[in-house]
Design a protein around this nucleic acid. Structure first.
Lengths: 291, 291
DNA sequence: GGTTATACATGCGATAACGCATGCATGAAG
DNA sequence: CTTCATGCATGCGTTATCGCATGTATAACC
């Protein structure tokens, strides 16, 4: 048993994590046959069976779990290294990955992205629109824009904007509410909310929950289609065509918009450049976010 | 900058450690051209210059030092993994590396080695004779035999024998000392010792230092050739032809013989088998080591 | 001044690693 | 019962990687 090939250890880890040759191969950007071959190599090198080949796939043995655990620790060190290299990198070229909620990318960021692109054409800007929070420690992205109350404990952050939320609906609903405030009002709620906001229920007792969604884009679409009233951030209601603010809810504070990055990565030239552009851009847009 | 190839990180580390392409290649068992190519790949992947190509070789940049440091931490994890795999391995086949001082291997271990070989023919036994202490944590060897006072803090150990040392010389010297105890006596000292052992100086005031060596095999050879008297472990003086114990020094306690291994590796089947064989063998040889 | 050793660059042929296409087994869905 | 999707094995042609041989530059030594 000599020195193990590190890339093979990584491959064992990927297979343990992802469960199938194909999934592991996709994660490693390799053909799954290559994964199978590397597993075979690793088993030969380590002198141990790492996976049992069953009809429905590769099942890791204890030894494979041990390998995967250690490879995971190696990976932590690799990510640490990558962050530090990115943080000390002074060039304004190469890849820069940012992540943000879909709706911010769609309705708020385009101007800043275009400006950044013009200023730093050599930077390969990759934008990952996702509502899942990517792991900035693992360098799934260099810089994140998040809607939350704090930047998070391990991340360095900068508050880009305070936000308010309000109630929005189609013009038809706005008219109806103005004419007859006592008529039934249909609400579309985000799934985590139990009930219509208390202020609305008190002022408009005829409020009723009609739909529960798990996705804000879908909710906004439903509101545009006239299915009901949605509480959403000011910027979103104002940005979407076919929606108007309705007076059911007084504007109230919402989670702020933060720009965050891992402290290792924060001082990198590309991250710094993007920060500066976005910070200045957002300064001009503050009115969009508050009542 | 995407995921780095771990083997390339390892290669950067090897080049930083060993200083030249050729030395790094030797350490990795690769041709040095391959090392050069991997460095180039790593630089492309990381988007950084890692080494400056000067007339007299590759000089690492700060970035390379950073990479090397992190790769070193990855390597610690790898060695940890290898030890654990070895420790849980129940097979009695494959590689087993032991290390011991040259003189023990030459004059004490052969019987045990032969017996082990007969009992476990499928084990690839590699014996590394060295006076440097190999790093058992880094798996330079699985099991070590050492002459020391303790097994060391991080290692598990078993005392194989207590030892005495005494003074030995050629038959000519033995005769001379017996005839005329007052005549000048030439000593061959190990370089770390300042002077003739105090007991000998007091009993034989005509003792004088004639040579200082840094190698016990050479000293023994010189003693066999009649150049003088050497203080050495009993087992050695008794094992070497052409040497006799001389009464200049009363036998005195010497460092013990230990068998040591990293606790992770200790329970491995091959290590355990070797331990048992050697332990039993050494039990029959205890008289060789003490006065 | 010529010889030797070290350290690297470069080009070429050999080899090992890889991707792709095909085929088989299994289980779920229509 | 058929169809489709998932998961893997195997064989083949391609690509990338590697080792080797050769050449250059520099420094050390006699």
């Amino acid at each position: 048993m000599k020195d193990a090939a590190w890339d093979d250890l990584k491959t064992v880890m990927a297979l343990v994590r992802h469960g199938s040759l194909a999934a592991a191969g996709a994660a490693l950007r390799l053909n799954y046959t290559t994964v199978a071959r590397r597993i075979a190599r690793a088993e030969a090198a380590l002198g141990t069976t790492l996976f049992e080949r069953l009809k429905d796939g590769y099942v890791p043995t204890d030894a494979a779990m041990l390998v995967a655990a250690h490879a995971g620790e190696m990976e932590v060190r690799e990510h640490d290294l990558m962050r530090r290299l990115a943080g000390r990198d002074g060039t304004l070229e190469g890849a820069l990955t940012i992540t943000a909620p879909q709706l911010l990318i769609a309705y708020v960021l385009p101007a800043a992205l275009a400006q950044f692109r013009g200023l730093y054409p050599k930077v390969d800007l990759k934008v990952r629109a996702t509502n899942d929070i990517l792991d900035l420690s693992r360098r799934e992205a260099d810089l994140g824009i998040r809607i939350s109350r704090t930047p998070g404990d391990t991340l360095t952050g900068l508050r880009l904007a305070e936000q308010h939320s309000a109630s929005f609906a189609s013009p038809g609903w706005a008219e109806r509410i103005a004419k007859d405030p006592g008529a039934p009002i249909d609400w579309i709620l985000y799934e985590t909310h139990d009930d219509v906001p208390k202020a609305a229920r008190e002022a408009y007792p005829s409020s009723r929950v009609q739909y529960r969604f798990d996705d804000m884009i879908a909710m906004a679409g439903a509101a545009q289609a006239g299915l009901g009233v949605v509480r959403m951030p000011m910027f979103l209601g104002r940005s979407l065509p076919g929606l108007m603010q309705v007076p059911l809810l007084p504007p109230q504070p919402y989670m702020d918009v933060w720009m965050v990055a891992h402290p290792d990565v924060w001082p990198g030239a590309k991250v710094r450049a993007f920060r500066d552009v976005l910070k200045a851009d957002m300064k001009t847009r503050r009115a969009l976010f508050v009542a």
